[in-house]
Design a protein around this nucleic acid. Structure first.
Lengths: 222, 222
DNA sequence: CGCAGGTTTGACTTCACTCAATCGGCGTGG
DNA sequence: CCACGCCGATTGAGTGAAGTCAAACCTGCG
């Protein structure tokens, strides 16, 4: 992390009130602090005390859980605007790492707690974030349990291309994609090549995907 | 459903205040109504307006989503005490059906809304239910994406045996288990037979599982 | 008793995994 | 500027875990 390497997030620079308000409606009532993390750096670990919650300003974050032998399931990627790390108990139930150089807003859990006890609309916003995460988790369960490799990769591309159109730049490597989709890197790679061959996408660079036919992709999504 | 067959849940009998309070701390402030549903009956459908939330009194419920071609992923089973059907938006994002004859407490969504705007602790409880569902969804994502058939079935048995010890009676059929674990009924059946052969469980009837060695099961869970 | 549904088992197939080799882009150093 | 090495990505060959299709088996019920 920027400036200091201590385990706990360090204050870097308070954001201007205007900027903060734009980025954090409601939860923005709490004075968040900016934190910069390098690529691959851990933000919080599974089982650690949940002292902070986070909002992505720029960059990307992966939340994941591990099995004893190291198999990894990435639960979600978090992009600018997304909130993560709000767990109900006192411990984080997943680990989170920066996928690339990432800037975060850090919010003290104790302040969230205090606010949500005073302000029902803040409590409601907390609920909203968790419900949104649940909604995504449900879609991911359907993908993991019932879709083929082709459908998984097509769904992934369409989900990542929500905002952009035509071209998208992936911040994560193949093994991140594989662990998100419940596949191996080889299968991800083969499937992307297959999508390129059939004209659905183009792959000008390994982390750049050009959408050639949204229709073909959508048809494969089932 | 009992008494009437209309799509909307029907009032049956108000529960005594004491009983209601025991079953529904906080959300119990709202006068819930009892509803009985038959096995296989739909409770709410995906995309329907979310007029009600539910709490299981007795029986079992499955929440699931479908792909266009009918492939099904069961997101969760709900047992006595569990709350389901609290979605944030105005529409249910999953379908719910009774696994067997089931008694539910039904709560009007509008009343939940109203209460959560007045009472921060009620809002917090709503958040809690959703967060609990998310927690389970995360564990299920790890299972679906990264566990083998043997690990999936062993995990399932251990999760179902949380309360009971030694013997457990499953309310659901093999295809429900298969759609919950991301497997086929044949694989579930074969895997159960395998667990019986290796002495981890006994299967005196198709829906009855006797735990013979929790250790062996746990070892297979990874 | 016989049917119907769910379940188990068997034989075979296939999709995705494993292992291994090769490719390609990028940064470093000669 | 080019050569080298590194690391992630791609591709290929072969394997294996789970799926498909199909038959047999319970078990409860009319």
């Amino acid at each position: 992390m920027l400036i200091q390497t201590a385990a706990a997030p360090q204050h870097v620079a308070p954001l201007s009130a205007v900027h903060r308000e734009m980025d954090l409606p409601l939860v923005g009532l709490i004075p968040g602090q900016v934190m910069d993390v390098d690529a691959e750096e851990e933000i919080h670990g599974e089982g650690e005390p949940a002292q902070y919650a986070y909002r992505v300003v720029s960059g990307a974050v992966r939340s994941f859980t591990l099995l004893a032998d190291g198999r990894r399931q990435i639960e979600a990627f978090h992009f600018p605007g997304d909130v993560f790390g709000i767990d109900v108990g006192t411990l984080h139930r997943v680990s989170a790492e920066a996928v690339c150089t990432t800037r975060l807003l850090v919010i003290k859990r104790s302040q969230i707690e205090a606010l949500s006890q005073r302000d029902c609309s803040a409590a409601r916003e907390l609920w909203n974030w968790t419900a949104q995460a649940l909604e995504r988790a449900r879609a991911q369960m359907l993908l993991l349990g019932r879709k083929t490799a082709l459908e998984k990769v097509a769904s992934f591309i369409l989900a990542m291309a929500r905002k952009d159109d035509g071209m998208l730049e992936l911040p994560m490597c193949r093994s991140d994609i594989a662990d998100y989709l419940g596949l191996t890197i080889e299968t991800v790679s083969r499937t992307l090549s297959q999508l390129e061959r059939c004209g659905a996408i183009a792959l000008p660079a390994s982390r750049r995907i050009e959408l050639r036919s949204r229709g073909k992709l959508a048809a494969l999504t089932e």
